[in-house]
Amino acid sequence: MIGFWRKIYSKYDNVKAYTLLSPALILVILAMVVPMALMLSFSMFTQVSMMEIDYTFTFQRYIDFFQKNLLVTLLIKSIKISFLVTLITLITAYPVCYYIAFYVKKNKMLWLVLLTLPFWTSYLLRVFSWKIILGTKGVINSSLINAGILSEPLTFLMYSETAVVITLTHAWAAFALLPLYVSLEKIDFSLIEAGRDLGLSRFEVFWKITFPLSLPGVIGAILIIFIPTVGDYVTPALLGGIDGRMLSNMIQAYFGKINNIPMGAASATIMLTTVVLITIIVSNVTKRLTQRLT
């Protein structure tokens, strides 16, 4: 009998692979898939009172969501902020990766480690350090006032959308740097030389060869920055003020103070669906655009 099982086990890679995968997959199923399915069903219930939930199925929470101007506005604002953050992070990180991939000769790994190191320090603390910098009595304002350039602190720095965008761009840099670097590093330099040899200008070489070949990294970065930032909670809570509030702060409120779990669940579901849809669209459009470019 043991021989039989051993034979089955050794014979099929599928069986071996899934045996190895089972702990991780079971964890994902029990701790993510099932809870999310439950959350989805809760989004179709009704909160009757503080402690009581009516378990009849209804889509009313979704209708409520789109009828509440505040929620729709927050959703749009969340998406707008994430979109800006993704774009700015990509544009600012790209030249850095380009430099390291093509110009740095020695100790590339060291450069890369140094670039990603700040990412590992606590997210909360990084957000907090921006509070120190941007605050009304923070580093920028106090320095400028001390130097006599300003008499009143700049108020738009703190508790604003700008503050949220700057902080998130800083916080998510590593997630743009790594995939971009990996895809640029993979490019065979002789392709670029071939482009020059065939009469393309530096600019054309970049748009027709380098950029399209780095596209997997660009799309990867879009994926791992855009989706999580839409659901960011800490930054808007600490730095956003009223102007910079995002949908996740509202979701938190539904699960906390307001205590309307179905409504919170519905908002979370809508957030996730929108984000996934947008990501699919954005990465497709990016691909198309590049195809047209080349």
């Binding site: 993510m32 791992i224 999580p228 659901g231 909670y233």
Partner: peptide, 16 residues
């Protein structure tokens, strides 16, 4: 879990 907004994971685990 690495991709999904963390708040959604948190809320889902909270509910269950």
């Amino acid at each position: 879990p690495f991709l999904i907004p963390e708040i959604i994971l948190a809320v889902a685990i909270l509910v269950i």
